[in-house]
């Protein structure tokens, strides 16, 4: 079943007189449970695509169906609700709230969604155990290593049990070893049924994905699922 259906997506940035077509006539279909790597040169539109898929940005034209529902026409608050319930983000620079502990950062999406504290605590405890962070629950981000920070961020992205995880260069700020650990972690989530879309510059990492999309100037230059062979 199609989780994501993009049709004729255009995203134009106006820079003074010049119009930058960050996404130009993009069509894309991604099914439930897929593992997709998005690759391509800098400025090719990878982050723009991911922001759009995550409902952080709206296209200038085209339609986006998520789980069969047209989400481009939703109000800002309805989109926020979809983000809260269906989508998890993992960023290159972790984006943890510096004054909150690891446990509080993981609990943040549940707190925003109004889930009672007792249920939050139980789920955070399970997540901490699952991501090997039991001993770091009360540490603030500046007391954690890069790999631990990204694990906290992934725990946060999965705590609401989303259908889709979007990761923009999740290993960009990590050394190869911790990067591999993080990728393993994301892949194990995908093995559990979550759809995973990863933007990466790393060929080795892209090679691990079952499907690779290569972008060029806002278009899909190559899609391994359609490629011959």
């Amino acid at each position: 079943m199609a989780l994501i259906e993009l049709k004729g997506i255009e995203r134009v940035f106006q820079l003074g007189d010049a119009a930058v077509h960050a996404l130009a006539g993009l069509d894309l279909r991604i099914d439930n449970g897929e593992y997709v790597a998005v690759m391509g040169p800098s400025g090719s539109g990878k982050s723009t695509l991911l922001n759009l898929l995550g409902l952080l940005d709206r296209p200038n034209s085209g339609t986006y169906r998520l789980e069969g529902r047209d989400v481009t026409t939703l109000s800002a608050d309805e989109q926020a609700r979809v983000r809260s319930e269906r989508i998890g983000f993992v960023f290159q620079s972790f984006h943890l709230v510096p004054r909150l502990t690891a446990a509080e950062n993981i609990a943040l999406p549940m707190m925003l969604a109004g889930i009672p504290a007792r249920e939050r605590n139980a789920r955070v405890a399970r997540a901490l155990a699952g991501f090997g962070l039991e001993n770091r629950a009360d540490h603030r981000p500046d007391q954690l290593s890069g790999g631990q920070r990204q694990r906290v961020a992934i725990a946060r992205a999965t705590i609401m049990q989303p259908a889709l995880i979007l990761a923009d260069e999740p290993t960009g700020n990590l050394d190869r070893h911790t990067g591999d650990e993080v990728v393993n972690l994301l892949e194990s989530l995908n093995a559990g049924g979550v759809t995973l879309i990863v933007v990466t510059h790393d060929q080795a990492m892209g090679a691990r994905a079952r499907r690779r999309i290569v972008m060029e100037d806002g278009r899909i230059d190559h899609d391994s699922s359609h490629a011959p062979g």
Binding site: D77, I87, F89, P109, L112
Partner: peptide
């Protein structure tokens, strides 16, 4: 600003 962007990405509506 970064934190506000994050809260929005995590699904916080404008009201929150």
């Amino acid at each position: 600003t970064g934190e506000i962007g994050l809260l929005k990405a995590l699904g916080a509506p404008a009201r929150t």
